[in-house]
C-alpha cells in the first residue's frame, strides 16, 4: 500500500514536470534581426546585418558584414548573459582605460558566448576561438548562412526576447594588415588581442508583430450607400403613385 502510494506520487510529479519542460522548449518561435555597427573605441569602419530565426530550440542564422580586416579569421558569436545589460558595449566599458575594448571588457554589456557562428562543425561556446572554422572575410566581407543550430531552451528564449547580441571579432588597431602587436588576448595567450577584440556588434531584436495601420479611410472606396439606395427607391415608388393618381383624376374629369 505504501509502495503504491509512492509510485502514484512519482507519476504525478513527472506529469507536472514534463509539460513545463516541453512547453519552454517550443515557446520561442521568433524572427530576429541585428544591425551590426562598429564597437565603440575600436575604430572599425564596417557594418552588417545578422538575422536569426528561432524555431523551438533550432536557430537559422544569415549574416553579411563588410569593412573588416580582409583575409583574417573573424570569430563571430551570439552572446548572452543573464546578468548582462543585453546591449553592445560603450566607451564606458573600457575598464583598463587603454582606449580600446577587449572582448572581456564588453562582457558586462553582451555577456558570454552562447553560440559560435562557425562555418562547419561544433557551434557551442567550446568553439569560440576555433579560428580555422570562422569566415576569413575575403575583401573585408563576411557572407554567412547556417541552419539547424541547436541551443538550450533558455538560450532560444533569450534570443527570441531580444536579449542576445551578435558580435564579430578581429580588429586591426595598428593598420598593419594583420593581427599582431605585443598585447596578447586574455582569451587565448597564443593570439594577439587584435584577433579577439570585438569589431562589430548588434542586439538581435524581434520582428514587429503583425501589419501596420497605414490608412485612415479618407480616400477609401465608398461603394453603394444602402440607405440612399432605399430612400431613392421609395421616393420613385411614391412619385409613380402620385403621378398615376393625378393622371386618373384628370382622365375621369373628361
Amino acid at each position: 500500500m505504501r509502495s503504491r502510494l509512492k509510485i502514484v506520487t512519482i507519476a504525478f510529479g513527472a506529469a507536472v514536470v514534463l509539460p513545463l519542460g516541453a512547453g519552454s522548449a517550443f515557446a520561442a518561435d521568433a524572427d530576429t534581426t541585428a544591425q551590426l555597427a562598429p564597437v565603440a573605441l575600436n575604430g572599425v569602419e564596417g557594418s552588417g546585418t545578422a538575422m536569426v530565426s528561432v524555431e523551438g530550440t533550432m536557430l537559422t542564422v544569415t549574416m553579411a558584414a563588410s569593412g573588416l580586416l580582409p583575409d583574417a579569421p573573424h570569430a563571430a558569436h551570439i552572446h548572452f548573459g543573464a546578468e548582462a545589460r543585453n546591449e553592445c558595449p560603450t566607451a564606458a566599458d573600457d575598464a583598463s582605460g587603454d582606449g580600446t575594448l577587449t572582448t572581456p571588457e564588453g562582457a558586462p554589456a553582451y555577456g558570454g558566448i552562447v553560440v559560435s557562428l562557425t562555418k562547419s562543425g561544433d557551434t557551442s561556446p567550446d568553439s569560440g576561438l576555433a579560428v580555422d572554422r570562422f569566415d576569413t572575410a575575403p575583401g573585408g566581407e563576411i557572407s554567412y548562412e547556417r541552419g539547424s543550430i541547436e541551443v538550450a531552451p533558455e538560450i532560444a528564449d533569450a534570443i527570441a526576447s531580444g536579449k542576445a547580441a551578435v558580435v564579430i571579432h578581429g580588429v586591426d588597431h595598428n593598420d598593419s594588415g594583420a593581427y599582431d602587436g605585443d598585447v596578447m588576448s586574455e582569451l587565448d595567450p597564443a593570439l594577439p588581442t587584435e584577433a579577439t577584440d570585438p569589431a562589430l556588434c548588434g542586439v538581435l531584436m524581434a520582428a514587429p508583430a503583425g501589419g501596420v495601420a497605414t490608412g485612415a479611410g479618407g480616400a477609401a472606396s465608398a461603394g453603394t450607400d444602402q440607405g440612399l439606395l432605399m430612400a431613392g427607391g421609395a421616393l420613385l415608388v411614391a412619385a409613380a403613385g402620385a403621378g398615376a393618381f393625378a393622371a386618373r383624376r384628370a382622365t375621369a374629369k373628361v
Binding site: L228, G232, A234, L235, A238, G243
Partner: peptide, 10 residues
C-alpha cells in the same frame, strides 16, 4: 418632384 429626388438619391 418626388421622381427627381428619387433619381438624385439613387
Amino acid at each position: 418632384g418626388l421622381a427627381l429626388l428619387g433619381v438624385v438619391a439613387l
